[in-house]
Amino acid sequence: MQISVDVHNYMETLVGQVLANEEYVEKFDHEQLADLACLALSQLRPVYIRHDIDFLSALPEERLVTLKEYAESAVDAAVSMIVDDRRKNRQDEIPVIFSKQSFDDDVELEWFEKPILNKK
């Protein structure tokens, strides 16, 4: 089994359908569309499935409409981030100064950094 082949996030399909509309394809380049997809998908709860046909046959139509609305809303929110991209007007002349060390070997790991299994 390969997860990337056998399992996928159905929300990717819905976001892809939204981004395939002419209003997005004509307005944004390939890189911006990829950014839009990432930004939109980051806002959505994933729906992992194996086969679209099995999923859709068991999914009530109202729920599918709701998922499509979520995808459209997420893309709309992502568009504002791309249009108002702060990276365009960035001034690289300002130096970045770190006031403290970013990594300290003596600091205890956060809960999400600790391994799940302890080695014996």
Rank of each mutant, 00 (worst) to 15 (best):
W111A: 15
M81Y: 06
V5R: 06
D84M: 03
I97Y: 14
A40N: 02
S4H: 13
E26N: 05
E72D: 08
H51S: 06
A71Y: 02
Q101C: 15
Y70S: 10
V75A: 03
H30K: 11
S42R: 15
E26C: 00
E62P: 12
V96I: 15
C38Q: 15
L41M: 04
Q91Y: 09
D85R: 01
F103T: 08
A71K: 02
V65N: 14
D85S: 00
L56W: 10
Q32K: 12
G16C: 06
G16S: 06
V75D: 01
Q91M: 07
M1E: 14
K100C: 14
C38P: 12
D106R: 15
P115Y: 05
D6A: 06
L19T: 00
E72Y: 09
Q91E: 11
I3A: 08
P115T: 10
K119I: 06
R45T: 09
L109F: 12
P115E: 11
A77H: 07
V25M: 11
H30R: 10
L109D: 10
N89Y: 07
V83G: 02
D35N: 13
A20L: 03
F112T: 10
V7C: 00
A40H: 02
F28L: 02
Q17S: 02
D52M: 14
E72L: 08
Q32W: 08
E31C: 12
M1C: 13
L19P: 00
E113G: 13
V47E: 04
H51Q: 09
V79P: 01
M1Q: 13
M11Y: 02
H8V: 01
S73W: 01
L117Q: 09
A34Q: 15
Y10C: 01
L56Q: 06
D85L: 00
S73E: 04
A74G: 01
S102Y: 12
F103Y: 11
E110D: 11
E12Q: 11
I94T: 12
D106V: 15
V47C: 04
D92I: 13
I3N: 09
K68Y: 04
F28W: 07
E69T: 11
H8L: 00
E23H: 09
V5F: 08
Y10M: 01
T66L: 05
L14F: 08
I82A: 05
M11V: 00
L59Y: 06
E108S: 14
D105A: 14
R63C: 06
Q43I: 11
K120I: 12
D104E: 12
